[in-house]
Amino acid sequence: MFEARLVQGSLLKKILEATKDLLTEATFDCSSTGMSLQAMDSSHVSLVSLMLRSDGFDAYRCDRNLSMGINLTSMTKIIKCSSNDDVVTIKADDNNPDTVTFMFESPNQEKVSDFEMKLMDLDTEHLGIPETDYSVVVKMPAQEFQRVCRDMSQIGESVTICCTKDGIRFSASGDLGTGNIKIAQSANVDKEEEAVVIEMQEAVTLTFALRYLNFFTRATSLSGQVSLSMSPEVPLVVEYKIADMGYMRYYLAPKIED
């Protein structure tokens, strides 16, 4: 028996929005710890890693580990049938292992819907990602990062991110010319969410495809802040924290000189 109740049901809409450009299907792994998902896009250039801890749900029961192969397009259709203020419960019954049920309850309990969705048998590749001490971790407002990625993609297909203790610089070049955006570390801020904070061991310069970074910024509604973790010649980690529950992380392989 698996049952996970989420009063803030609209969170699932935001999570699906944040995966839709990268994934069409994925396996949700459910255990007593929580629900997690790890999946690469079809080109294997980027990876989505979602964690929703069990203690972040309003009720959570998972008697035994369960892997649910989900067509995310189908799940999106079903989740769109919920209202933003609905309570969402995800249920899976051991006696009926090929389906998952989504139940939506209006806040006043006057409307209750349930949708049963067929599960898929997915043969997904799982990557072992080691714990890494990154050379640079930048925390910045998620909306600011979204704006930078959007603006850089007006200029070119790739962005070079150069991070020093003074700040973070994004550079792009293309047929029309070049663009640079430099954001300094905040001197002092009243609101933590508006701060730009750079923790640095060594300066790093890396180049990434903007197409994927723009896909990652679909998660902007999940969190006020985003963190970018970088080390020389390794994948970038872009993390959006999901308050009191976990995170949505994206990994992106860099572009490197041959």
Binding site: H44, E125, L127, G128, P130, P235, I256, D258
Partner: peptide, 14 residues
């Protein structure tokens, strides 16, 4: 001159 790497260049399947 720069080539897009894949994640499998960096991480192993488990």
């Amino acid at each position: 001159p720069q080539r897009q790497r894949t994640l499998t260049d960096f991480y192993r399947s488990v």
